[in-house]
Computed example of a mutant assay.
Amino acid sequence: MIARLTGAIAIAAEEEFDPDTVTPGVWGFVVTFALMVVVVLLILDMVRRIRRTNYRAEVRERLEVERLEAEVLGDQGVAPDVPSPSPNADDDESGPGAASAR
């Protein structure tokens, strides 16, 4: 077995190597181009998925902040969406009790 292997190596060493005849050819170009297209598409998909993940994380953070603000305002006895009464609320005559006060 070793003798055959050394014989094949000796025959290969005797042959002259011509770099002009060794080319990948058209199929080598097609395969390389297809591989490049697949890699570019994978990179675009990865960037899209990373961007989507980052946006989801930002939205989660905003929702968490809003929830915490609502809890803090709720603990203080103030409703988060109800505006505080103005200081001149007693002078306003257009309120619901204005008609009965006259």
Rank of each mutant, 00 (worst) to 15 (best):
P85L: 01
V78E: 05
S84I: 03
P19F: 03
G74R: 12
V39D: 10
E14H: 07
V38W: 14
R67K: 09
L73T: 08
D18Q: 09
M46D: 12
A8T: 04
V38R: 15
D45C: 03
R49F: 07
G95T: 11
V47M: 12
Q76G: 11
D20P: 00
V40G: 01
L44Y: 12
E58S: 08
E71V: 09
R102M: 00
M1E: 08
G25W: 10
V59N: 00
L5D: 09
I11W: 04
A8C: 02
S94T: 09
E69I: 06
V37D: 05
L35K: 15
F17D: 04
I43E: 06
V72Q: 06
A3R: 10
E14Y: 04
P80V: 00
E14A: 14
P96W: 05
P80H: 02
D81H: 02
N88A: 03
E64I: 01
A89E: 00
L73S: 09
E66Y: 07
T6R: 13
F17H: 10
L44H: 08
R48L: 05
S94K: 05
I2V: 07
D45A: 13
E93I: 00
S94I: 02
G7K: 11
F29G: 08
E64V: 03
A8W: 04
L42I: 12
E14Q: 11
S86D: 02
L41F: 14
E69Y: 02
E64S: 14
I11Q: 00
S100E: 14
L41I: 13
P80W: 01
G95H: 11
Y55W: 08
P80I: 03
W27Q: 15
R49P: 01
S100R: 14
D75M: 07
V65P: 01
E69C: 08
E69N: 12
M46L: 15
W27M: 13
E58A: 06
D92P: 02
L5N: 01
D20Q: 11
D81V: 00
A89W: 04
M1C: 08
A99D: 05
R51A: 12
D20L: 14
V59Q: 07
D20S: 14
T21V: 10
R52F: 06
A98D: 04
F33C: 06
V82H: 05
A34R: 13
E71I: 05
E69D: 13
L44S: 15
P24V: 15
G28W: 06
G95P: 00
R102Q: 07
W27D: 15
L5W: 10
R52Q: 11
P85G: 00
D75G: 09
L68Q: 15
L35C: 11
S84D: 01
I9G: 05
G7A: 11
T32L: 10
E14D: 12
V65A: 08
E64W: 06
D91S: 02
F17M: 06
S100Y: 10
A98G: 14
V47A: 14
R102W: 04
L63I: 05
P19S: 09
A79L: 02
V72S: 04
